[in-house]
Design a binder for these strands. Structure first.
Length: 488
RNA sequence: GCUCCGGUGGUGUAGUCCGGCCAAUCAUUUCGGCCUUUCGAGCCGAAGACUCGGGUUCGAAUCCCGGCCGGAGCACCA
């Protein structure tokens, strides 16, 4: 008995984690960072990195750094400097500090020099191909044996060399079983004009170098990154080792595959430039701003990413899942309205009930929100796709029988409609209505009429068009309202 | 090819480290029913999974070995 008791006690309590696993290592004064390359606005894939960082910081009252990794001028898209913080804000993420790597070149140079002085890095003037040949065969290149003095001399002259003529390499293990790890490049020459630096510098740090220096200097306790950085983590550990720094806790998460939108930032940019897409918020794109425009709640994305967590296995997220979650947010807030696509004006023969003022609640579950009013006096617009032979109930109004071109009054009560199992369809009054366009998720447009109560809406409001789906009001024009379709 | 990493319902997850409380959690999805009124919302209900084969063990989703499948990296990109 006693033995059993001891065994049970040594076991860690199994705490049910909600979504994110507990952070390894310290939970005191944690410092995390989100470090995107400013090549465009944030994509849904970026939220995979941003959200867990922000969530851990929130849970442990830590510090979140937004670090803009703009050390490759070819991959900097200037507007992204503004777009990234905007997109983070939409997600509900406010970094405690924003840092631009392009401000820190002098720092990188200091550490590069230190590394050379320690004999941990060397200037390599080999041809790239030749170096690879040697490296792949576990052979050091001739430059590796140069003295510290020779290296320092080359380092001083680095700035005057031709791009490609030399690089600074960090010594690792030339026999490392993974060739990718062997003596990686820390600094190279770049002649491109940098959007923030102009042509002030020619010596640019490689990502592995600037990231490791910054992660250390900024006191990162944990580094969350995709598993595509696994080899980089190992490379960077050599640098920590050379410098005698403590390594942070590394957490690698798997790839996030998103169905339908395999669109990379560069492809999206190209499509925008050639007119294929209307902009970064084109509904076909997977950018956060496109998703926002369609009425997807940031909370949906945030929660979904938390649910996916930071495990190493890849995951594929589907629109169905996003829509399903988002529906839970939208259902209680979105008021209901009628919309008829490709409206057809119909007159109900033999209708003699006179003018009806029909009231329908803005939301069936929230009567306190009030009612909309729809007038019916024997005529209405119906959606073309709803017109077919049979008995139909114009929702809350009358029941009609359609037979080819003829539309004849059948009855008025809902009970009569039920009795004949009439399908219930929505309609729009002929006197008072508004022109509505709905931009669908494939950028096609549904054109039709909506009820006049839509006039009370403001841009940004999300509604549910009954039997059509949820949509966000994007723009109010003089003679029409433009919605973006979210989902059913 | 080489190096490394994964594999729980259609999808996303919990459980795996420390084997039994797991005939496996929750969400989404699909299907069915309900609803004085969304054939598309809502409500209720149901369906559906441990990659395979060996081994260890009284007992394996969980530990070991092997196969299969999938992914990533192999840049003077990040």
């Amino acid at each position: 008995m006693e033995k059993l008791g001891v065994e049970v006690e040594t076991k860690k309590p199994k705490v049910k984690e909600v979504g994110l696993q507990e952070l390894p290592g310290t939970h005191e004064n944690i410092v995390l960072r989100f470090a995107p390359n400013p090549s465009g606005p944030l994509h849904i894939g970026h939220s995979r990195a941003a959200v867990p960082n922000a969530e851990y910081v929130k849970r442990h009252n830590g510090k979140l750094i937004l670090r803009i990794e703009d050390t490759d001028p070819k991959r900097v898209f200037e507007p992204a400097y503004q777009m990234i913080p905007e997109d983070l804000k939409w997600l509900g993420i406010e970094p405690d500090e924003v840092i631009y790597q392009s401000d820190r070149f002098e720092t990188y140079y200091d550490y590069a020099r230190q590394l050379i002085e320690n004999g941990a890095a060397y200037m390599c003037t080999c041809d790239g191909g030749d170096f690879k040949e040697l490296k792949d065969n576990c052979k050091a290149c001739p430059c590796r044996d140069n003295s510290v003095e020779e290296n320092l001399e080359l380092w001083e002259k680095f700035d005057t060399m031709q791009a490609g003529e030399a690089v600074l390499r960090v010594k690792t293990d030339i026999n490392h079983k993974n060739p990718a790890i062997r003596d990686w490049v820390a600094m190279r020459l770049v002649d491109e004009t940098h959007p923030r630096l102009g042509n002030k510098y020619r010596i640019y740090p490689m990502m592995n170098f600037s990231v490791a220096v910054d992660d250390h200097l900024m006191g990162l306790t944990h580094v969350l990154r995709g598993k595509d950085h696994l080899a980089n983590t190992e490379k960077q550990k050599y640098l920590y080792d050379h410098m005698g720094w403590d390594v942070p806790e590394y957490i690698h998460y798997g790839r996030l595959k998103m169905e339908d939108i395999a669109l990379s930032t560069s492809k999206a940019k190209e499509g925008i430039e050639n007119g294929t897409y209307s902009g970064w918020d084109d509904p076909r794109l997977g950018t956060l701003r496109a998703i926002a425009r369609r009425g997807i709640s940031p909370k949906t994305i945030y929660d979904l990413i938390i649910e996916i967590g930071v495990k190493m296995a890849d995951s594929a997220i589907s629109w169905k899942k996003i829509y399903g979650l988002n529906r839970n947010f939208l259902e209680p807030i979105a008021n209901r309205y009628f919309f008829c696509e490709n409206p057809v004006k119909v007159s109900v023969e033999n209708y003699s009930e006179g003018k009806m003022d029909i009231e329908r609640p803005l939301h069936a579950d929230h009567p306190d929100r009030g009612n909309r009013h729809l007038a019916f006096d024997g005529e209405a617009y119906l959606a073309q796709s709803d017109i077919a032979d049979g008995i139909f109930r114009l929702m809350d109004a009358v029941n009609v029988e359609i037979d080819g071109e003829n539309i004849v009054y059948h009855s008025t009560s809902f009970e009569d409609a039920r009795e004949v199992k009439a399908r219930i369809i929505q309609w729009v009054p002929v006197e008072e209505n508004v022109n509505v366009k709905i931009v669908m998720d494939d950028a096609s447009v549904k054109t039709g009429l909506g009820e006049k109560a839509l006039n009370d809406l403001e841009v940004g409001d999300i509604v549910q068009f009954e039997r059509v789906g949820f949509a966000r009001l994007d723009e109010i024009k003089d003679d029409e309202m433009i919605f973006y379709f979210a989902h059913k």
